[in-house]
Simulated scan of single mutants.
Amino acid sequence: MKMTQDHRTALGDILRWRRDVRHFRSDPIDSSVLQRLRQHMDRAPSVGNARPWRVVQVESALARTRIIEVFER
């Protein structure tokens, strides 16, 4: 596939905003979606292949509240 200017622009946008993204959803995420995200993360660039990202799957309302409090601090 040939890299177009649209691809370069989109990649630049992704690299600019991807740092330290913390987004909380209140609705359940299908396990197939999580699997696809993990596959993309495995191919994502990282310095020295360090893969510094973490995905936290939270399965209770209490745990979700506590995690959000930690992130907000």
Score class of each variant (00 low, 15 high):
Lys2Phe: 03
Val58Met: 00
Arg54Phe: 13
Ser60Lys: 08
Ile68Gly: 06
Arg51Tyr: 10
Phe24Tyr: 11
Lys2Ala: 06
Val47Ile: 04
Pro45Thr: 01
Ser60Cys: 08
Trp53Tyr: 12
Ala50Lys: 14
Gly12Leu: 06
Ser46Asn: 00
Ala61Met: 10
Arg38Tyr: 10
Arg38Lys: 12
Gln39Ala: 15
Ser60Asn: 02
Arg16Leu: 11
Glu72His: 04
Asp30Ile: 02
Arg73Phe: 04
Ile67Cys: 03
Ser32His: 08
Asp13Phe: 01
Met1Thr: 10
Asn49Pro: 01
Pro52Ser: 13
Ile14Lys: 01
Arg25Cys: 10
Leu62Lys: 14
Met41Gln: 05
Pro28Ser: 02
Trp53Gly: 10
Pro28Thr: 03
Ile29Tyr: 06
Val55His: 01
Arg51His: 12
Ala50Arg: 14
Arg73Glu: 09
Gln35Asn: 15
Arg54Trp: 14
Met41Trp: 04
Pro52Ile: 08
Arg64His: 15
Phe24Met: 10
Val47Cys: 12
Ile14Phe: 04
Leu11Met: 05
Ala44Tyr: 00
Gln5Pro: 09
Arg25His: 14
Ser32Gln: 14
Met3Arg: 13
Ile29Asn: 02
Val47Lys: 10
Ser31Ile: 13
Ser60Ala: 04
Ala63Gly: 12
Ile14Val: 04
Ile68Ala: 10
Arg25Tyr: 12
Leu62Pro: 04
Gln35His: 14
Val33Pro: 00
Pro52Glu: 05
Arg19Leu: 13
Arg73Leu: 09
Val33Thr: 03
Leu15His: 07
Glu59Asn: 13
Ile29Trp: 05
Gly12His: 07
Arg19Cys: 08
